[in-house]
Amino acid sequence: MNGPVVVGVDGSKSALTAVEVAAREARLRGVGLHVVHAFIWPAMHVDLGPSPTGPVGGGLLNAAERVLSDAVDRARETAPDIEVTRELVTGEPLTVLESQSRKASLVVVGSRGMGGFIGLLVGSTAVHLSAHGRCPVLVVRGDARDSGPVVVAVDGSPEADAAVGFAFAEASARGAELVAVHAWNTWTERGDDDPGHPQNLVDGVDRLRAGEERLLAEALAGWQERYPDVTTRRRLVEGRIRPALIEETERAQLIVMGARGRGGFVGLLLGSVSQALLHHAHCPVAVVRGDRP
């Protein structure tokens, strides 16, 4: 999709950092940047203008316009060559950003917020968008660095396949190495005929490892052909995937994972691995749904 990159802003330092990341993403993709501020106060029927005894430039509406102006200025400083548009939208942040995601190629948010995006914590807005947004969501946290690999979590699922494709595209655009991480002792969703099922471990751990190596290779094969410029490194993890991924983020410039939405917010990655990374990653986190029309 060639829609714009959308970034939600609220006047916080975190949001301005998100604007910088979003501007660079728009430049990499060759699309415009759309800066959005959710303005909930009209729906609450409060006075939006300046106080009769206050400064002329006071009032909620003027404050909201300044939030947008500051964000647009930061975006143009970061990427002067991209088109930047702005929009003040009446509504609460979750609904506004979910609606914006329908026409966007990517939605970017900070990990914390204030003002128009009050409560913009990874437990609310980011999780909601990751589960229900119509495009990939990039949550800016940790260090927004320009060096290091792009890391992707791989488990062989359709959701992870969409994440792998997104990660390859990001690595190609950034000129970065891709590190694909897969945990090979996770049995929760596998059948008895799977080489990695505990009942089939009688042939030894080598059989399990070989099956997981094959799964990882197959998950990457088609994308490697499509992006031959991307250097790929595979990492098999014998153990818990969450600490392994968090460790990778200490050196990465981006980590990408799939989101499994199963009726609401429930999903294997969204409920556990994604939550852990959204709270503890040392770099920006992209969550990609595999069921986008």
Rank of each mutant, 00 (worst) to 15 (best):
A169L: 06
V179G: 04
A169E: 15
P136M: 06
A153G: 15
E177L: 08
L129Q: 02
G165Q: 07
V150K: 02
L178T: 10
V164M: 06
S147A: 12
A171Y: 10
A163F: 10
R145N: 05
D161G: 14
R141E: 08
R174Q: 11
D146T: 12
D161V: 14
V139W: 00
V179R: 13
S172I: 00
A167R: 02
F166W: 12
R174G: 08
S157K: 08
V150M: 03
G156Y: 12
A171G: 07
A162R: 04
V179P: 05
A131D: 02
R174L: 14
E159L: 03
E159C: 15
S147D: 15
A167T: 09
S157L: 14
S130N: 02
S172M: 02
P158G: 12
E159D: 15
F168G: 05
F166P: 00
P149T: 13
A153N: 03
A163M: 13
G133W: 00
G175N: 12
A169N: 07
L178H: 05
V150W: 01
V127K: 02
A171R: 08
D155F: 12
D143N: 09
A163V: 10
L129P: 01
H132Q: 07
G133M: 00
A126D: 02
A162V: 09
V154A: 08
A144H: 07
A176I: 15
E170N: 06
E159P: 06
V152F: 04
G156M: 13
V150Y: 01
A173G: 13
A160R: 07
V140G: 01
V164G: 03
R141T: 13
V150L: 03
S157G: 15
P136D: 06
A169R: 06
G142A: 09
T125A: 08
H132A: 04
S130F: 01
A162F: 05
V179D: 04
D146H: 11
S157F: 15
A169T: 14
A144M: 07
R145F: 10
A176W: 13
A160V: 13
S157V: 13
V127R: 07
G142E: 04
A144I: 08
R145I: 12
G148K: 06
